[in-house]
Design a protein around this nucleic acid. Sequence first.
DNA 1: GTAACTGCAAAATATTTGCATCCTT
DNA 2: AAGGATGCAAATATTTTGCAGTTAC
Lengths: 150, 150
Amino acid sequence: MPTAFLPIRPDMKATIAEILKRNQLSITESRTKILELFQDTGNALSHSMIEQETGKEFDRVTIYRTLQTFVEKGIIHTIPTADNSVLYALCKEACTQGHHHDNHVHFICDQCNTTYCLDNISTPDIKLPKGFIQTQTDLVVSGICKNCNS
Amino acid sequence: MPTAFLPIRPDMKATIAEILKRNQLSITESRTKILELFQDTGNALSHSMIEQETGKEFDRVTIYRTLQTFVEKGIIHTIPTADNSVLYALCKEACTQGHHHDNHVHFICDQCNTTYCLDNISTPDIKLPKGFIQTQTDLVVSGICKNCNS
DNA sequence: GTAACTGCAAAATATTTGCATCCTT
DNA sequence: AAGGATGCAAATATTTTGCAGTTAC
C-alpha cells in the first residue's frame, strides 16, 4: 500500500498508457505527464499546481482541456472544498475501474493545504427528509494531516 | 425598541437589524436586502443569484463585499459544491447564535439546482487514519429534491 | 491520411483593489 | 463630524472559445 511514496517505476508508463487507451484517449505528452503527476503525488491537485509542477511545459488551456477530458472519462474527479477552490484527484478505484462515483472521504489539511483521498473510508448513509432522493455524497473533512501533526 | 416608522414586516426587519447590530455592522440597504433575501428563499444563493434577485439594485462589488463581511462575521457560510461554484447560505443556528461551524448536511438538487441546508441532519463522526486531526466536516448530498420529485 | 490534440490569440467571466463620494451613527 | 459603506473605474485572475498548425494512430 505504499504506492504513494514511490519514485519512478518502469511499468508506470505502461499503466498510464493503459488508462488512456482504456478510455479511448490518444496517448499524448501532456496527458501522460499530468496523469503521472497525479500518481506521483497521490494527492489532489489544482489547475495552478499542475501548471507549476509541469514547469509551464504545457499551455494553460491544454491543462484545462486535459482535466476536463479526464473528468468526463471518470479518470479523475473534482473535490468540493470548503473554500471553493477547484481540486482534482485521481483515485484508485476510479483509476482502475473507470468508476464515476467516488464515495470516499476527502481530507484537506488546514496547515499545508494538501488534500488526501481517504480511499478506504467510505461515506456514511444519510437519512434524508421525505421526498429527497440521493444520488451522490461528498464528504470533506478538514483539519491537520499526519505530516503536519508531528 | 424597534424603529417606529417601519414598512411591511416589522418582525423581520427588526430581526435583520438585530443580526447586523449584534455583529457590529451598520444597517445599510444592501446588507438588509441581501439578508432578507436569504431569509425569504431559505436556500443557498450564489453571487449571481443575488445580483439577479436584487434586480441589479446594488453594485456587483458591493455584493462581493457584503457576502465577504457576512462570512467573516459568521452570519452566512460557504457551501462546498460538487461543481465548485460558490454558494452561500444563512443557517438558523448560525443566524441566531453566531456559530461559525455548520455541521449540518447540504443537499443540492441535480434538477432545479436548489441547495438546501438540512439543519436537522448533522454530519456523522468519521474515523480518520492515525495522525489526522479533524476540525470540520462538510457533507454535501446531491440528488432530486422534494419539489422536483413529484 | 485523418481525426484528434495542442498552442496561441482573444473573448468572456469572475474577483479584487483604489479612490472619491455618500450614508450611518 | 467621523468612520465606515458604496459605486465606479480599472486591474487582476480565471475559464472558455475559435482556429490554424501539429501529432497520434
